[in-house]
Design a protein around this nucleic acid. Sequence first.
RNA 1: UGGGGCGUCGCCAAGCGGUAAGGCACUGGGUUUUGAUCCCAGCAUUCGUAGGUUCGAAUCCUGCCGCCCCAGCCA
Length: 563
Amino acid sequence: MNDNEITAPTNFIRQIIDRDQASGKHGGRVHTRFPPEPNGFLHIGHAKSICLNFGIARDYPGGMCNLRFDDTNPHKENQEYVDAIKADVRWLGFDWEQRLFYASDYFEQLHGFAVELIEKGLAYVCDLSAEETRRYRGTLTEPGMPSPYRERSPAENLDLFARMKAGEFEDGARVLRARIDMAAPNINLRDPTLYRIRHGVIHHQTGEQWCIYPMYDFTHPISDALEGITHSLCTLEFEDHRPLYDWVLDNISIDCHPQQIEFSRLNLQYTVVSKRKLTQLVSEGHVDGWDDPRMPTIAGLRRRGYTPAAIRTFCERIGVTKADNSVEMGILEACIREDLDAHAPRAMAVLDPLKVILVNYPEGVVEELQAPCHPKDEGMGSRTLKLTREIYIDRADFREEANKKYKRLVSGGEVRLRNAYVIRADQVIRDAGGEIVELRCSYDPATLGANPEGRKVRGVIHWVSASEGLPAEVRLYDRLFNNPTPDGDRTVASFLAHINPDSLRVVRTAVVEPSLAGATPGEHYQFEREGYFTPDGRSDDGRLVFNRTVTLRDSWARIEQTV
RNA sequence: UGGGGCGUCGCCAAGCGGUAAGGCACUGGGUUUUGAUCCCAGCAUUCGUAGGUUCGAAUCCUGCCGCCCCAGCCA
């Protein structure tokens, strides 16, 4: 393989499409769709589907991808979710152009196809209760029993279905069912429900126009066909539904038959990617909302400081297969570090301040120093640092004694202040309790942009002026769960048992360099030696607030443990 | 014990009968005013397993084992 060759995304679905293109299937068209149900926020698993569907549309000549809300269950859905989903898809960098659809756009047509099935004797109105229906369905190993209403005439079914639509029956009193095979080994084919009655709900798109709502298995294939979808991509759990998808299209008068292809959903370690569980985290207050930076939602990742490019890279890296998977967080983290390392301007922030007085530095002087915003990208310009007699360094960057592996400040030792001078620790000041409260250091005026002669400094540490620095609140996030598969543990009652109590640490004492005064949400910074951070508005008392996106890789952490 | 899927390095994943890509992680070494980045090197005689077909099998066939999904008037 050539060095410069970029491996284009390849997966079994694209291979199928390649073959279809070669054979002229679908007239050479490639048309996909992303069909979320607006009953929650999009999460990283949806991002995989979005990147797959929109990515295919982008990469094939004339390819298109629709955004379609699968809104057939008004009970759980609402406009807030519709709006959030649209915003998230756009933010991820994808465009459905003029093709924004709702399954509810097709309610009239769907109804017409249901009537057609009834007329053909392929659907019937069933009066069994939900409970009875379940009993009649049989089990995984035993065939079901035909409903007593299965042999109703088309005329009677037509009449009953019309009255269902007219609102004559209560919720649950009757349903419309496909008439397929009650003994089918595939349970989905045992006369599945096509329509149910739902009174008193206001659908976010159709209001109170309907009191009967079509089921997914009936709606989805028809919606796909109506939109001219060529490849209908969905997750593995729908594999068993494919015969039904095909049955619907084979038995109604429609001239398009998309191909359903299933792929495995994403499982991300140390989190949950199930809308039900994410909803529970939000509704029970375990997190602050759908956009809590610990959530694997698109909104949460955005607020955490993830970029669309990083998420897209991630989706490309994890690939698309039919194998069950459990993706390590490390892959997602590597993607965001890669993006931010190249694009985030650098800054200095001290999270756990320890005051340092530069005893030989003049009082009252504010020295302006220029520092590059990026060590490798001069185009990113520079910012002004302000050095004063009193500064802060991080408590972890000083030790009274340490072996040679410790490359920071030690008593009597020298270290460089990043982008500034070399200093030497001369004296440690303690409070009554013996805790170190201040360091007296001397700086070497000859070391600005130059190494000291004849000596070697141990390392480089970051700092912020005590008087010129800005107070800030920094939120340090960790994994939301302390178990790699919180929802796969059958020994606990609920995945909630694995919530990490330390997933959020709020640091209110941080001080950041003055150039960050105008930092705004949506920006990304690398706080040197600390990690990547993104502004998150202001605290109640007006302090800057930063969310930690991800730490820097830290090989010292490992070394330190072995010392 | 019905039906549908899946099993290639710690994780993800190429491979599609010609003799195991790549990424993440990990381990060494180099550069470095971020213990970051970057660079260089190492990291599956083996593809769930047992047979078979073949000059040749991760790729084809058969058996076995393991894991996932399905009994909503959810999607």
